[in-house]
Design a binder for these strands. Structure first.
Length: 296
DNA sequence: TTGTGTTTTATTGCCTCC
DNA sequence: GGAGGCAATAAAACACAA
């Protein structure tokens, strides 16, 4: 192969394991001290045994750890630049020639390359042209490969971020839902309390009214002549207008059943989910409890 | 071994910015 | 208009259960 050849980014790394050359090249590799001995060892991102900052980063390990990666320094037996340049390929090996003319296949980056890129991504997830060129140079990749890696990495980060946001919103929603349920229960409880108090009040009013009527009948039989012009002509037993305590209870009763009163604003005004089923559909302010306690 | 699902690398087309 | 970003997608590589 003539020198000065520039291999496209799709031909720089390797081909699949079924390729004869690949097998040949792998057999020539010299495992490094930190390289897994299992040729099939394929570390996944995030589970790498390597630590980018924890151990020395061996540039000469290009192609490390994956069966599908080919290290050119292994091929040439040299210890040249880790992230080799292809400008100085000089052999006319037919196998190599055949290899490089194979249909393009995807190749995974090495663990070290990925770690290097990950670290770089952590620093800054956007790629300026200078940094792209520098990274490409250091990693022995085409600048376009670096750009693509960052592009895909940003997409993965965004997806993860969306998942996080979703979880946060879900937790928020669950909390609000629980709060809402508790409020509904409290509201029902208060409604029941209002109903009971109302019943007692009505009952008492009724009793007082009956007692008053009995007293009136027994003590003050009607003396007035029937007056056809009188508005109370059909009602022979006029209530005692001087009974102020009775007036107070009347007012209370009116207030109780006055929909527009402050004491019992209609629940429907603020409650869209639970329309009242009973005739007693008025809520009241919690602080009015004292009023009802004292009024009874 | 094979079918299937997931991950990673790469392409395409569209959009925005300078 | 070119460069670069993103979304959608293809396709290879890989993992794993049956």
């Amino acid at each position: 192969m003539a020198g000065g050849r520039v291999v496209s980014c799709n031909n720089t790394n390797s081909v699949g394991g079924s390729n004869n050359l690949s097998v040949l090249l792998q057999s020539q590799r010299v495992p490094s001290s930190s390289e897994p001995m299992d040729p099939l060892f394929i570390p996944r991102p995030g589970s790498s045994p390597y630590s980018f900052f924890g151990i020395p980063f061996f540039p000469s390990l290009w192609g490390l750890g994956t069966r599908s990666m080919v290290s050119f320094e292994d091929v040439h037996g040299g210890n040249r630049s880790f992230f080799r340049s292809f400008d100085d390929e000089e052999n006319g090996d037919e196998d190599l020639d055949e290899y490089f003319h194979q249909p393009e296949k995807k190749r995974r980056l090495t663990v070290d390359q990925v770690q290097f890129l990950e670290k770089s991504f952590e620093v800054e997830n956007k790629l300026e042209p200078e940094r792209k060129t520098q990274l490409a140079k250091e990693l022995g990749l085409q600048p376009r490969q670096v750009a693509i890696w960052f592009q895909n990495r940003r997409a993965r980060w965004k997806t993860k971020q969306l998942e996080k946001d979703y979880d946060t919103l879900q937790a928020s929603f669950n909390t609000l839902k629980a709060d809402y349920g508790n409020l509904l229960k409290e509201k029902d409880k208060l409604k029941q309390e209002v109903l009971q108090l109302t019943d007692k009040l009505v009952m008492k009013e009724k009793n007082n009214s009956e007692l008053s009527d009995v007293n009136t009948v027994c003590q003050e039989p009607p003396q007035k002549p029937v007056d056809s012009d009188s508005p109370h002509s059909s009602y022979p037993f006029e209530p005692d207008q001087s009974d102020t305590s009775q007036d107070e209870e009347d007012n209370l009763s009116k207030a109780l059943f006055q929909p527009s009163s402050y004491i019992f604003p209609k629940l429907e005004d603020n409650d869209y989910s639970d329309p009242p089923a009973s005739s007693c559909s008025y809520g009241f302010h919690v602080e009015d409890h004292a009023f009802w306690s004292s009024a009874y």
